[in-house]
Design a protein around this nucleic acid. Structure first.
Length: 879
RNA sequence: GGGUGUGUAGCUCAGGUGGUUAGAGCGUUACGUUGACAUCGUAGAGGUCGCAAGUUCGAGUCUUGCCACUCCCA
């Protein structure tokens, strides 16, 4: 027997453990069916599950479970990302608590510590994914730093290097002074702030009392100035071009050059050029062959090229201003709105800095990645994301892949004493190559930089399937993967890079479809963030409402291209939905509705049972179609509507008279049909709510097949002949219920009803379903009206039928007149609309005949109804 | 500044290709403990579909302009 109340905490975790220990998530590699594969976007190993994951993983699990039930060979490939900076940060913070810095430990010991941390605390998010019900094949769990994936990284790195697509260059890069590493453009966030604009002047060399006026937001960088630029079109200032300015304080002469970077309309029209510390100035410097003067140390303090060595930029700025004031060169300081770059992990100001770094030639790799999408080999859903993708890919910049961190893939690069570079997959190979080239044994030292985390996750679609082993069964079976499901915020970080790396490494697309979903926001539509304190922990939600309710919420809210706002009421609503299903199942149990082996739906005789079976099949079709089209909300709402609105609200209520009646054959068939439909519900609801469906499946009967592997119904022939009769019954019941409510008839009053204007077949249906109608509309009887309607009868119209109920002295006829007047007004309004359309010659001429016919039908129906209502009004006019 | 979305009931949201009286859940009102379920049932109220013009026999849906907000890129 099922428990009286639905309590997901009682069974969800156990069910998951059983699936996992039974190997239910593993693909049957011997099967000859189509393959279906999804790679899990690897969460950071430091991560904990947030609502974004809950959405992402629910959608993937729905696709995975649906396709598994379709009988395909299904793999959901899980794993985690080593998350370079994030992980190093966590471990460094832990060490700091014990007063140890990573430098105290040294590189090797530190990395050991990270690995230890990973073993102990790295698996949190994977446990949480299990709690959500994600049916990943955990036996194949990978980590971006594990041996296989590291081999993939080395192999592709060497290949790229030898193809000339990885190179070392001294360039201006985004420098994070907290972690003392370069970061990529994507890891920099631009924040708007109100800063200051400083106006000062530089003396002109050899011209006493002449100055050039400068406006800058960063006075302390003046020690790195190697020119002042003026536009050649600047009438006021162009006479200065070719002269020299003197950098005050350090008294260095710098040229005044002509360059359009200096906009005559902005600031003073003259711009100080600091090529080593500004991306724009760097370009100016290159155009004019200006020297680069670096004024910063790696920790963003000023160096000995300045008078303020060792001071941080803020202090140095104050000192510079003071000095300039002393010299009488400071003019004014104004508030100035500006955009300042910050490190997305470190939160410190990012400084452009000249350093030696390694780059991937992204513009070259992007070509194939663009082509694959242009040619439709990979499709974006919703398609509009193609635009974003193309926009980015066509303007892509070289990708800085080196990081001056310790945690990550160390680059397979070795230097000889003279600096010659050797790039091989192993040290031995590098040594051999070096010895061969030099003709003697040389000492090699390895590059200390590690790779950007996204370099290894860029290989994820194929490295997890066994590459570089080209003969791997999994690689052959599952590559290209079927669908990638991800949020749009990592389209550049990850999706674009996987496309590039896969097209380069595999010469084939990584996935056929990329499904992009939105972000999960808080109730007000604000982005969730720890600093705002508006995050909702999915684990707490699951604890309170069950994983199924959270999953169903995510599915039901997922409409293409839109963000999802959290809504606890709604989650509670889906928990109620689960409760509803639970109680429906209990109803079946109490009424001995057990699944019947080899139950043949084509032999079902009762219209009510035929009807619900057809409706269940229609719902199945709807769910299938919508999942295939990635219309998750339509799919979820389809099952919801069927379970609650059709099965519980109508079918269960309508079969009660049968189940409590005397007709044994009818009872038997109804019990079997009920059980069949309930089973069908469990099947089509399973991808959305795997736990409750499995719990019910396992407890309602002994089964030959586990629900997780139950075949998904396909190609069914739907017999909906009985649909019309049942629709009429439902319509009659609804009309009578409305009438009762509107007239405030006591719920307990048993009434007699008479039907007018019914055809012979309609009358026979009414007779067949009389007990159902009476039970649900709380009538004493329903039969055909013989003779004229008596004057105390109130009426309601249902389709083309008129239902009359005599109400001697029970009713307030004034209220009834009011009700009928209201109905009449509505009918008149509609009739006016139909008449306007049909008297419009161009409508009748140009609209399709079907539409015109339909309009005429509606008009005549409304007219007939109007007559009936008028008759009823006349009848009770004097009461 | 460039680009992209969004604006529908009190709230949160659905409304592929234009065609009934624009739907759901929550909330709300009235009634109800009828032998699964009060985490419930029945019935109702509630909308100039952001604004304005246009195309069309017909516009929530297509076009243009405007307003407000979101996000991405500079």
């Amino acid at each position: 027997m099922l428990d009286k109340t639905y309590n997901p905490q009682d069974f969800e975790e156990e069910i998951y453990k059983k699936w996992e220990s039974d190997g239910d998530f593993k693909p049957d590699m011997k099967s000859d069916k189509d393959a279906f594969c999804v790679v899990l976007p690897p969460p950071n190993v430091t991560g904990v599950l947030h609502m974004g994951h809950a959405l992402n993983d629910t959608l993937q699990d729905i696709l995975i479970r649906y396709n598994r039930m379709l009988g395909k060979k299904v793999l959901w490939q899980p794993g985690t990302d080593h998350a370079g900076i994030a992980t190093q940060m966590v471990v460094e913070r832990n060490l700091a608590k014990e007063g140890i810095s990573r430098r105290d430990l040294g590189r090797e010991k530190f990395i050991e510590t990270v690995w230890k941390w990973k073993e102990q605390s790295g698996g949190t998010i994977c446990k949480q994914l299990r709690r959500l019900g994600a049916s990943c094949d955990w036996s194949r769990e990978r980590f971006t730093m594990d041996e296989g994936l590291s081999a993939a990284v080395r192999k592709i790195f060497v290949k790229l290097y030898k193809d000339g697509l990885i190179y070392k260059a001294k360039k201006l890069v985004n420098w994070d002074s907290k972690f003392m590493t370069a970061v990529s453009d994507l890891e920099v966030v631009q924040k708007e702030t109100v800063g200051k604009m400083y106006y000062y002047k530089y003396p002109i060399a050899g011209e006493e009392g002449e100055y050039i006026h400068i406006a800058t937001t960063r006075p302390e960088t003046m020690f790195g100035d190697t020119a002042v630029a003026v536009s050649k079109d600047n009438e006021k200032l162009k006479h200065l071009i070719g002269k020299k300015a003197i950098l005050p304080i350090i008294n260095r002469e710098i040229p005044i050059i002509a360059d359009d970077h200096a906009d005559p309309e902005k600031g003073t029209g003259a711009v100080k050029i600091t090529p080593a510390h500004d991306f724009n100035d760097f370009e100016v410097g290159r155009r004019h062959n200006l020297p680069l003067v670096n004024i910063l140390n790696p920790d963003a303090t000023l160096n000995e090229n300045t008078p303020f060595a060792g001071l941080d930029t803020q202090t140095a700025r104050q000192k510079t201003i003071e000095k300039m004031e002393e010299l009488g060169l400071m003019e004014k300081i104004e508030d100035h709105p500006m955009v300042i770059p910050y490190g997305d992990r470190s939160g410190v100001v990012i400084e452009p800095l000249m350093t030696d770094q390694w780059f991937v030639d992204a513009p070259t790799l992007a070509k194939e990645a663009i082509r694959a999408v242009e040619d439709g080999e990979t499709k974006f859903v919703p398609q509009s994301y193609e635009k974003t993708y193309f926009e980015w890919m066509r303007n892509i910049q070289p990708w800085c892949i080196s990081r001056q961190l310790w945690w990550g893939h160390q680059m397979p690069i070795w230097y000889a004493e003279d600096g010659t570079i050797f790039c091989e997959e192993t040290e031995a190979e590098a040594q051999a190559a070096a010895d061969k080239q030099f003709g003697r044994h040389v000492n090699l030292t390895r590059e200390t930089d590690v790779l950007d985390t996204w370099f290894s996750s860029g290989l994820w679609a194929f490295s997890t399937l066994g590459w570089p082993d080209e003969n791997s069964d999994y690689l052959k079976t599952f590559y290209p993967t079927s669908v990638l499901v991800t949020a749009f915020d990592i389209i550049f970080f990850w999706v674009a890079r996987m496309m590039m790396m896969s097209m380069y490494g595999m010469k084939k697309i990584p996935f056929k479809t990329i499904y992009m979903h939105g972000l999960v926001r808080d109730e007000k539509g604000q982005k969730m963030s720890k600093s705002k304190g508006n995050t909702v922990d999915p684990m707490e939600t699951i604890e309170k409402y069950g994983a199924d309710a959270l999953r169903f919420f995510m599915a039901a809210m997922e409409t293409q291209g839109r963000d999802i706002n959290m809504n606890e009421n709604r989650i509670a609503g889906y928990r109620n939905f689960a409760t509803k299903l639970w109680n429906a199942a209990r109803f079946g149990e109490m009424n001995e509705a057990k699944p019947v082996k080899d139950f043949n739906i084509s032999e079902v005789k009762l219209a009510i049972n035929k009807w619900i079976i057809a409706k269940a099949q229609e719902a199945t079709l709807e769910v299938s179609k919508n999942i295939e089209a990635f219309r998750f909300s339509d799919a979820a709402n389809g099952v919801y509507q069927f379970v609650w609105g059709t099965f519980c609200d109508w079918y269960i209520e309508m079969i009660k008279p049968i189940l409590y009646g005397e007709d044994e054959a009818a009872k038997q068939e109804t019990r079997a049909s009920f059980a069949w439909v309930l089973d069908r519900i469990l099947v089509i609801l399973h991808p959305f709510m795997p736990f409750i469906t499995t719990q019910l499946w396992d407890n309602l009967a002994s089964r030959d097949v586990k629900l997780i592997h139950h075949p998904w119904p396909q190609n069914e022939v739907i017999d909906d002949q009985s649909a019309q009769a049942l629709d009429m019954v439902i319509d009659i019941i609804s009309s009578i219920r409305s009438l009762r409510a509107e007239m405030n008839l006591p719920a307990g009053a048993k009434l007699k009803a008479y039907v007018k204007d019914a055809s012979a077949s309609e009358l026979s249906h009414i007779k067949d379903f009389a007990n159902i109608i009476c039970s649900l509309a709380r009538l004493e009887s329903i039969e055909a009206l013989s003779g004229a309607a008596s004057s105390d009868m109130v009426q309601t119209v249902s389709g083309n039928l008129t239902i009359l109920i005599p109400l001697k002295g029970v009713v307030d006829f004034a209220a009834e007149r009011e009700r009928l007047q209201k109905e009449l007004a509505q009918l008149d309004k509609n009739l006016a609309g139909y008449a306007a359309k049909l008297s419009n010659a161009s409508f009748v001429e140009r609209a399709p005949a079907k539409v015109v016919e339909e309009e005429k039908r509606r008009q005549s129906e409304a007219l007939a109804n109007k007559e009936k209502v008028e008759a009823a009004l006349a009848r009770i006019a004097n009461l």
